[in-house]
């Protein structure tokens, strides 16, 4: 009884809607393709992929650094950093967008800095980058810190006593230990970057050809009654993210 109810619930809530989307797209494939191409869907998807790659690069570097700092170092202010790293999991994406709009908008604290550097943040590509980096922040840091805490420092100490410099210890011992963590971090980051909507909508403004991403494309299509295009892009996003999550080792999925 309990089993049956649980299965029905999960299948009804997730499985059936996915099936419905497949059917809806399958019913008018030509229309879907046409709207995706004509309305700038491919361009938007390309931009999302670029954002995802960017998020992996930035997250991989800063996350490895941050994981090392949080797992290996004790210092004043560490607790604050620890909480701040998890904050993106708790903050609504719209608020992320709003925060950067306030920070870089008229009268914002960093507006003079951006102007001095000649960078336009709002409704432009840098804004998309910022939003994506923010929402993806926790994944690499958490994965790396977790693994480093699990493996401890004895292998690194062993390498030191064998004469390895700190850089050699990092490249030959620490990094190989992090392979799994970096893989998981990459998958989670790509899935999140592709799916981010609220923050890139507010910060980027969904301007076709400039700041339109895959998700804001879906939103625009819905508002303009181009349902076929919206459904098509939704299916692409669902398929990509489902594949990503299937590539994750079990147990790593929970840490979203």
């Amino acid at each position: 009884m309990v089993t049956a109810a649980a299965i029905l619930w999960v299948v009804g809530l997730v499985g059936v809607p996915l099936g419905a989307l497949l059917l809806a797209v399958g019913a008018e494939p030509a229309q879907v393709v046409a709207e995706l191409v004509e309305q700038g869907g491919l361009d938007a998807l390309g931009r999302s992929i670029v954002l995802a790659v960017f998020a992996v690069l930035v997250g991989g570097v800063t996350g490895t650094l941050g994981g090392l700092v949080l797992a290996r170092q004790r210092f004043w202010g560490r607790a604050v950093l620890d909480v701040a790293v998890d904050l993106p999991l708790a903050v609504s994406p719209v608020i992320v967008g709003l925060a950067f709009v306030i920070l870089y908008g008229r009268g914002g604290w960093l507006e003079p800095v951006a102007t001095a550097l000649g960078v336009k943040v709002l409704f432009a590509t840098p804004g998309l980058f910022l939003a994506t980096a923010f929402v993806c922040l926790p994944f690499f840091v958490r994965e790396v810190a977790l693994v480093l805490e699990e493996v401890g420092t004895s292998e690194e100490d062993a390498a030191r006593t064998l004469g390895a410099s700190e850089w050699q210890v990092f490249v030959w011992v620490t990094l190989p230990q992090l392979r799994g963590a970096l893989r998981v971090g990459t998958l989670l980051t790509v899935a999140r970057a592709l799916g981010e909507f609220g923050a890139v909508l507010v910060l980027g403004g969904a301007i076709e050809g400039r700041t339109q991403t895959a998700t804001t494309f879906v939103h625009t299509m819905m508002e303009e009654r181009h349902d076929a295009g919206a459904f098509g892009m939704s299916l692409i996003l669902a398929a990509m993210t489902v594949l990503l999550v299937q590539a994750l080792p079990t147990g790593a999925r929970t840490k979203h």
Partner: peptide, 23 residues
């Protein structure tokens, strides 16, 4: 079923909304 449970972690929430609209 176990795989279906994980999907909402990955599927963009906007797409989740679309799924229910379609259905």
């Amino acid at each position: 079923v176990s795989a279906l449970v994980d999907l909402p972690f990955a599927v963009p929430t906007l797409v989740a909304g679309i799924l229910l609209v379609v259905m």
